[in-house]
Design a protein around this nucleic acid. Structure first.
Lengths: 343, 343
DNA sequence: GCTTGTATTGAAAACGTTTACAAGATAGCG
DNA sequence: CGCTATCTTGTAAACGTTTTCAATACAAGC
């Protein structure tokens, strides 16, 4: 393996000078710089990344800690972060914890060991453990940014969507279409209202809209559940439809939930969207391929990832570590699954 | 930061002994080992991963090079690889090239720089560039495994499904249901028949089944296209349906293509599955949530990832580098979208 | 008791880079 | 021309670990 020494010898300079050229420092005579570059090319030298990382005690790697990876939302987010980081010449260590605490801890240790420069976290909830871990990271000088969750700890940057407004918009859409008896399929945490949670925000927005925009709106909540999956959507959807005859619309706080409801409706012989309007949340690719195509409150997922990445990079490179809270807007995509109430 | 020196001092031994304890070597007296471990605990020492990687010139990182990441198939595969690697205490550097050659090259350079121990590649095709890059990796002593593509170069391990058999099974399913005029939606490469490509294999299987199992089967190929997306499926599907009145079934060589066709059928007012049976390929999660649920030839995606990971680990750890070619079976999942031909 | 072998330990080198420091060269200025 | 400031370069230390080598201690065998 050809090292900096070989380059120095061939170019007739010291290794310090080669290093200076490599790192683009000033105070190198142009002709010397030239000679060094020629030597590098002719030897096919590549800097030993391990040595360099070791010496400086930092890698150009950032960790991305996701609680899940297989969901459309997560993988879109991961992709956005990864490509943005790549363009800024950072590399991404992807860590799917799958909700497993041990795994999360092991990954955080790996990140500390590897001296990652920063970490982007989509937390499962702002519990004590997460707080402790984040503190540990920050003590070690590692920048942290949250994505898709506003941190309770004020010292952390975050990128979230305005889920309250999203919920509000969705509800307004349904109310404006004339719906008055509306089912809400939302997870347990959301209904309990742990206020930092994105789901809770959505539900708050839904409640507020119902209160603001019409006096005669009836909201029917699904029984609480833990995971916002297709299967859950189908099961609770079926129960809601059979249990609430006059219900004309359902708002799922996740596209996958809404798609599950859609399925339940199909199975029960309802014709969509005539017999039931269905609204989702997320704007995941899959929402565009259902039948009928799903109206949804779309999140700018790619933008979220991009901004999270750029925010983290800011923190890592600038000396001022003042945290930044970014809030993005969700927008309604009205497709085929929501129609005016027939009177 | 507490180093091995501090531990040595506290335990009253040399750093060599501490290192021996850390790496679990023999020839350390139990009481000394004990003392070192106590010192480690009381100081909260953690090995400096950068220093250790530098010294040994290898990290516990493996690269995973994927041409795309946002597709359900890719992200499921990535997830399987990542979790398997995690359990074996390897970490994954995820690299989505998105088909961009520059990006791919940059990522490969990163991997060389980081001295990754191995690389798993899902290649876009066995072109000259890929071959060159793989050779470069192998020269540097980095193990390589392919996934979802059989390599032309015999020296590389690979994990693929038997796509010929999958195509055959799918076609048999449709023929057994009585269908005789069957549309095939397949990409351009597949139709041209570059034999290593998974799509081509599927088409070969389809052709063979048609020839073996019935004398009167009529196959209608879609016009060739490049990307196997939902949109392409919808467009070509619409054209096929309107252009071929007697056609009673469509086989898409990808679930997303098939879902696109499903959409086209809906838009054209067909009732599914009564008017048209549709069969997909991949067994992606999304195929279970369409309406009607999509019959498909399922790939054991998780298993593919797992086996690819284990195969790579084998190569990295054992001295015998004999390549291994693993072929897995696809299985038909008959759901609601394919029904017997009404006569 | 002497030799030989083995278990245990420490001293020190090495990995390839970055960087603090010093020294030499050059230019600017009076 | 001499002095100072700036530019350019090299020497050498340092980063924290692993690993080679030698040294010591101890036991076994005669």
């Amino acid at each position: 393996m050809v090292t900096i020494k070989d380059v120095a010898k061939l170019a007739g300079v010291s290794i310090a000078t080669v290093s200076r050229v490599l790192n683009g420092y000033a105070h190198v005579r142009p002709e010397v710089r030239e000679a060094v570059n020629k030597a590098i090319d002719s030897l096919g030298y590549r800097r030993n990344g391990l040595a360099s990382s070791f010496r400086t005690q930092q890698s150009n790697i950032v960790g991305v800690l996701l609680r899940q990876q297989r969901t459309p939302f997560s993988s879109a987010l991961a992709y956005a972060i990864e490509t943005t980081m790549f363009d800024q010449s950072y590399r991404v260590l992807l860590c799917s914890t799958n909700g497993d605490a041990d795994r999360e801890e092991a990954y955080l240790e790996t990140m500390l060991d590897m001296r990652v420069q920063g970490v982007i976290i989509r937390p499962s909830g702002t519990n004590a453990r997460t707080v402790k871990q984040v503190k540990l990271l920050q003590e070690r000088g590692i920048s942290v940014a949250f994505v898709d969750m506003k941190p309770k700890i004020p010292a952390i940057s975050s990128v979230v969507c305005d889920n309250f407004s999203g919920g509000y918009q969705g509800m307004r859409h349904l109310i404006e279409l004339g719906h008055r008896k509306i089912g809400i399929v939302a997870g347990s945490v959301a209904q309990r209202g742990g206020s930092q949670d994105v789901g809770s925000e959505r539900v708050r927005g839904i409640r507020q809209a119902a209160q603001d925009l019409a006096t005669d709106v009836e909201i029917i909540f699904s029984p609480p559940f833990e995971s916002a999956s297709f299967d859950v959507g189908r099961e609770t959807g079926a129960a809601m439809i059979t249990g609430n005859p006059g219900m004309t619309a359902v708002f799922g706080t996740t596209d996958m939930l809404a798609i599950g409801v859609m399925h339940a409706a199909h199975s029960l012989g309802l014709e969509l969207p005539r017999d039931l309007s269905i609204l989702g949340y997320d704007g995941v690719l899959e929402s565009a391929v259902t039948f009928p195509t799903l109206s949804t409150i779309a999140q700018p997922i790619h933008e979220m990832g991009q901004i999270a990445a750029m925010t983290l990079i800011d923190h890592m490179t600038s000396t001022s570590k003042s945290p930044r809270q970014v809030v993005l807007e969700n927008t309604l995509i009205a497709r085929a699954s929501t129609i005016p109430l027939a009177d």
